[in-house]
Simulated assay, not measured.
Amino acid sequence: MPESAPPFAVSSLVAALRAAGCVFAEDEAELILSTATDPAEVAAMTERRVAGLPLEHVLGWAEFSGLRIAVDPGVFVPRRRTEFLVRQAAALAGPGAVVVDLCCGSGALGAALAALLGPIELHATDVEPAAVRCARRNITGTGRVYEGDLFGPLPTTLRGRVEILLANVPYVPSDDVELLPPEARIHEPRVALDGGADGLDVLRRVAAEAPRWLAPGGHLLVETSERQAARAVETIARSGLLPRAVGSEELYATVVVATRPDAAAPAGRLGS
C-alpha cells in the first residue's frame, strides 16, 4: 500500500467497492493499493473494478499455488480449486518430466508445476492468442507455448513421450454458461468456459487423442465437476486409459487422473 495513502482514501475506496457489490471490499482495496504505483492508478483500477472487471484483470495478476501469475484482460483467470490438479500432477511426475498443458490459458498450471518440481520439459497450447501471449510471459525460460487447438500445434516428436498431460478443459454445459457470475460470463473468453451440451465435448477430444501422446505409464489429469465425474471417467476409459476420480472438499475440486497402461494399447487406439 502506498505510504502516502491517507486513511480517508482507504475508507473511500472500500466504500466504492462495497457499493459495487464486492463482498471482500477490504481485501480488494488492500490489493489495489499495494499494486498501484500512484493515486491516479488507484483511481483507474478502482473504476475498472467498479465497472465489473475481474479483480485479477484489474490487478494484472492472480495468486495461484503461491505464485503471482500475470493475467491480461480477456484471459481466463486461474481458479484456486485447480491447485488440486497441480498437486496431483506433482505427486505423479518424476524429475525432468515431459509435461504438456492443454488449454493452458495464462500458463498457471505449467508455471506452478515447474515451481514445485524444478526443471521439466514443458509444452503448453491454447487456441486464444491473448492467452498465448500471457502464458509466454508466465513460463518464459520454463517451457514453450504454442498457439492452436489442443494437440494440433505440438511437435510430433512428443508423441509417446508425454509423462504428464494437464488438460484444464472447459466443462461448463452450454446452457449453464449464462448462469455464471458476470465476471466470468462477460470478461473471460467463452471458449475457455463452454464445454458443449453436457460439458464434456472438449474432454472427449482430449481423451481420444491422449493415448497417442502419453508415454507408457504416463498420466492425463483433467478437472471436472463432481456431478460430471462419473461420465468423465467413462469417457476417458473408452480411450483405453485407466481413469479414477479424486476430489478435495477443501478446494471443492474434482480431478480425473488417467494412466496409459505400460503395455501397448489395443490396435486402433493409439494411431500412428
Rank of each mutant, 00 (worst) to 15 (best):
P2C: 05
E3G: 07
L13D: 04
A16L: 11
A19L: 13
E26W: 06
E30L: 00
L33S: 01
T35V: 02
T37F: 06
D38P: 08
E47D: 04
E47W: 00
R49M: 08
G52C: 02
G52A: 06
L59V: 03
A62I: 06
E63W: 03
E63A: 05
S65A: 15
L67T: 03
V77H: 04
V77L: 04
P78K: 02
P78I: 06
R79T: 01
R81Q: 15
R81F: 11
R81W: 10
E83S: 05
L85M: 15
A89Y: 00
A90M: 03
A91H: 02
L92M: 14
L92E: 01
A93Y: 05
G96E: 13
D101Y: 06
G105V: 10
L109T: 00
G110S: 12
G110W: 12
L113C: 07
L116D: 11
G118H: 01
E121A: 13
H123R: 00
A124R: 01
V127A: 13
E128P: 05
A131E: 11
R136F: 12
N138I: 00
I139H: 10
G143Q: 08
L150K: 12
F151R: 03
L154H: 05
T156G: 10
G160Q: 08
V162H: 01
E163F: 10
E163L: 06
L165R: 09
L165G: 04
N168R: 02
S174M: 10
E178Y: 06
E178S: 10
L180Y: 01
P182M: 02
R190A: 07
V191Q: 14
V191G: 04
D194K: 00
G199H: 10
G199K: 11
D201P: 03
L203Y: 02
L214G: 11
L220D: 07
E223A: 00
E223Q: 08
T224A: 12
E226S: 15
Q228R: 01
A229W: 03
R231W: 02
S239F: 01
L241W: 09
E250Q: 14
V257W: 04
R260K: 15
A264Y: 11
A265P: 14
A267H: 09
R269I: 15
G271Q: 03
